[in-house]
Nucleic acid binder design. Structure first.
Lengths: 343, 343
DNA sequence: ATAAAGTGTGGAACCGCTCCCATGAAATCC
DNA sequence: GGATTTCATGGGAGCGGTTCCACACTTTAT
């Protein structure tokens, strides 16, 4: 019944056509140097002519590896597809992997069942290594994979940092730069809308805020700190509370652009002008940052680079746990002050 | 050097522990009925005890199939991750596939090179079938895959419709319902912002608009039609042109919510009240629809169901080309008229 | 009772590839 | 010039499953 169309061209056929043994043909296709130029050419011609494509399963079985890498995003699909973080990350990872001829497999476990399925998937040999992002809290997965001897690289500092190889972006430094920028523009009452304090990025950005104030000789003030959940609504509410407590504030550093956007709304409602009365700096350099009004000064994270670095790390995953910390870049726009203002 | 950790547990080990042959052990694990209850239990126990996980490559090599299905989205990653269409589609596909224990592999070819890579990937046996969405124009891929004997199901009617198995959503019907709804609310000068006319959905929604007018006995009027590119800005401009040509219009049907949102902006600028002066209906039931002001009446597409149907179709892909057309549903909100108005 | 059909099982071939090892020819050495 | 090394090559043994086939043993029909 089945269309015997181009019924499977195997290495055997190629070898036959090239008048060499299967072993020699295999050497040519695996770039083994011990082949005479004639044989090489003959095999290459035959392979091209027949449209030969090596059978993945057979190769994987013989070599013991699949030449594929899994990217595991443990986040609800709806979130994955809303956040510009992931396309950037994937682009970075994809670049490096493509150059090394590895296949990227995207996995988004949604449930505990999916997690188990995932472990079997990897253990069954589908992928040679795993890239893990947006882990929440202490997660069993990286440990279990590691126990099976499967290389894992985590994106973003995990809770048990010293156990795993990971790549992180310098959240403290990013926040520090943002707040220093505000201080340099002459702001003296700099408040912050921090992220959730049970997430490393949330904590680190608050730390960066504080140490920048200290470095600038500005007083630390608990009343100038308000935390929210990275959403716009959360930002609006937090800004309202800050205005109540510190009506004379002249700057806000928000730990995400969404929260910054919320802050902008609240500020507008309360009649404050941005940046004349209050300067605002966000975080992430989300597309919303450039299109908000006024355009938002923001901390840009090297997410593509993080992807690249994760992929690189995984590829030479035989090494002992390593870590890489990347630095951010401040995107200055109108929201933090007039362009003519002194730097 | 390599950690010989739990050095690969094979079927051989399981068989040994269960005191049966490898053949019998295999029968148990492939749900072959010709096994005695005792053997079955013994094998199951041994497998569990050893934490046995079948090697994928070996199984694929022996059976000739991989139990995986590729979803190919030929769209820039940035677009994929912006559009709520894809998570919904993936959810639908995932449901059906998970129930049948198939693995979903996401592929997003970005270039011609990627396309070639993709073909090799599938031909190499990584996946048993391909789901294809957002094809633009006449695309060589489905044909080439089909020529290799690989089952393909296309999402959205392809240009060469009768060659492939596909699932589509009834764009004509959706537009028809939207326009009928407007007419039922007493609107008489119903204009439309149509999508690009080189895309089937763009064309079909315009057709639906026209046939609804006809059905309602309203005159067709070329001046009441303006096409745009599915974006908000395009919608704004198109609305402006419509207002110039037909200042007395009392309704607009936009072929996407983004364009409808643009139309709302232009209408507000021109001082028209929605829905009192002009009723508006969009398409897609995008999240922006519910949060725009006023909330947008829109055509909701059964995207999850489309995913499910695509997966089902692929799974029994031995059949002759088939097609399935799904119907839409009108989401009535404020933009198309007061709730108290007569239906 | 004897033949026929049905059951559970193990041996072994096979899927398509890689790679170790033995072999013979050519190149290098003393 | 003979011994040794180098090199390309083919044979063949796996990799870890599935499945055909033959076999011994029951069960059922005649």
């Amino acid at each position: 019944m089945k269309s015997a169309q181009n019924s499977k061209i195997t290495l055997e056929h190629v070898a036959e056509m090239a008048r060499v043994s299967r072993a020699t043909a295999s050497r040519v296709l695996t770039a083994n140097p011990r082949v005479s130029p004639e044989s090489r050419r003959a095999v290459e011609r035959a392979a091209r002519k027949l449209g030969y494509i090596p059978n993945h399963a057979a190769r994987a079985l013989a070599t013991g590896h699949s030449d594929a890498v899994a990217l595991v995003i443990s986040e609800p699909t709806s979130l994955i597809f809303g956040d510009p973080f992931f396309p950037r990350l994937i682009r970075g990872i994809g670049e490096v992997l493509a150059a090394r001829d590895k296949q990227l497999i995207l996995l988004a476990p949604q449930s505990g069942t999916d997690m188990d399925r995932l472990e079997r998937f990897v253990a069954a040999g589908h992928s040679d290594g795993v890239l893990l992002v947006s882990l929440h809290g202490v997660h069993p997965l990286p440990g279990r994979l590691a126990a099976r001897g499967i290389p894992v690289v985590v994106g973003g500092r995990p809770a048990e940092a010293d156990l795993f190889t990971y790549v992180d972006i310098d959240n403290v430094g990013g926040a520090f730069a943002a707040v220093t920028h505000l201080a340099a523009r002459g702001r003296r009452s700099i408040t912050t809308i921090s992220g959730p304090q049970d997430m490393p990025p949330g904590r680190d950005r608050l730390l960066g805020y504080r140490s920048a104030l200290e470095a600038e000789g500005l007083p630390l003030d608990e009343g100038a700190e308000e935390s929210a959940d990275f959403t716009q609504e959360g930002g609006e509410r937090a800004m309202r509370r800050l205005l109540e407590r510190r009506p004379s504030l002249d700057a806000v550093f928000a730990a995400s652009d969404l929260m910054a956007a919320g802050a902008l709304r609240t500020l507008a409602e309360s009649g404050r002008r941005v940046p004349d009365d209050v300067a605002v700096v966000g975080y992430d350099d989300d597309p919303v940052a450039a299109s908000s009004s006024p355009p938002l000064t923001s901390v840009r994270q090297p997410i593509e680079e993080m992807g690249r670095e994760m992929a690189r790390l995984l590829l030479d995953a035989m090494h002992a746990p390593r870590r890489v910390i990347l630095t951010t870049e401040l995107q200055v726009r109108l929201s933090s002050g007039r362009a003519t203002e002194a730097m």
